[in-house]
Design a protein around this nucleic acid. Sequence first.
DNA 1: TAGACGTTCCCCCGAACGGGGGAGGATCGT
DNA 2: ACGATCCTCCCCCGTTCGGGGGAACGTCTA
Lengths: 215, 215
Amino acid sequence: MSTAPIRVLIADDEPLVRSGLAVILGAEPDIDVVGEAESGAQAVALARTLTPDVVLTDVRMPALDGIQAARRILDTVVPAPRVVVITTFENDDSVHDALLAGAAGFLLKRSRPEAIVQAVRLAAFGDTLMFPDSVRDLALHRRRATTPFPHPLSEREQDVLRLMASGLGNAEIAATLFLGAETVKTHVANILTKLGARNRTHAVVLAYRSGFVAP
Amino acid sequence: MSTAPIRVLIADDEPLVRSGLAVILGAEPDIDVVGEAESGAQAVALARTLTPDVVLTDVRMPALDGIQAARRILDTVVPAPRVVVITTFENDDSVHDALLAGAAGFLLKRSRPEAIVQAVRLAAFGDTLMFPDSVRDLALHRRRATTPFPHPLSEREQDVLRLMASGLGNAEIAATLFLGAETVKTHVANILTKLGARNRTHAVVLAYRSGFVAP
DNA sequence: TAGACGTTCCCCCGAACGGGGGAGGATCGT
DNA sequence: ACGATCCTCCCCCGTTCGGGGGAACGTCTA
């Protein structure tokens, strides 16, 4: 297992994060941090000249975001490095885009240092991929439409609609949410008018089609 | 990093695979193979008594397949171990099911031993997930193999269900298909009993979840 | 030929749904 | 202090659903 060390390029607009990653990765004997970029454009340029094995890039960056940078790197740099995307936010919809762009992995900045190191090693292996549980669903399911409904539903109405989308009747929804049956009726009626649905089944259909609930 | 070793339970119906995995994992100083199961049912039983940190289970097994075993282990064993599913076939649709069942990872038997070891370590970390590139698309995209209904629907019943899944009422369905309202009622009743649905909305939900109708 | 199954239609009837109205209380921003 | 919004519950009342029967007609098969 003692071959050439893994050459890593770090791309992040925050110097603190860059140095943190550099320290974590540089401490490993089988990993060499060969460069750091503070923008997506610079990451692409450095990837071309340095030809690293792994590019560890943030999602949000000036000049070129991490997804576009990843796409451009994978398209233009030969031999193509493995790109691991890192982000701060758990509920980031870009997971799906990143993986479709060809990223080898996706992880959170709050991950354990060991996990980050392992992710880089796995990416260098060339046949594996990893990302945190907290964003797994985002990769598994189709991207959720942000605001599909013309009139936004209130919190409670969303609760009711979710249960409606499970096939529950008004009485069952009332029992689940500890509400009176009349209250549920009110919420259902408001949902129908807000969504422009003809009946409860139509409302559920709209909920599925809009991505409000995952199939 | 020198805490207690990772306790691993191996489940596979082929003794050769079991011993192979045991050798690979046992060679690592931070990993202990605490048990081996040759069926899904035995895996569940051993998981309860051994309470391992990680369960490495095959997909295809007698008595109980790996997916069902994973689901049962995650539901009943406390503290819940991390389940990593392993399979022989790249084009295995069960990737999606496994991840939805709560599996922490998915990998191929032809993976490098290093990758398998890393997968176990990452699973033990508790917040990461990995699986090979070759099956990534299966996890990213929706399952296309539509799970058939327990009792198959007749042609006409499928017509009615499709219109139900558009949010139409019985009268509208009757008008669309040039049928009497009573006929539609009969079909709907048969659909509900065949699908085991509680009401028409539930039937539409099942139609969406099974892939019978596209979202 | 005698079933089995699917499709079509009918009846009754209770339960659930959906539209209309009103009303009290909580919270929040102006 | 006021209005806006949301959540909660109540009333009436007509429509729709859903379950229980039954029955006619066709096709296909054993």
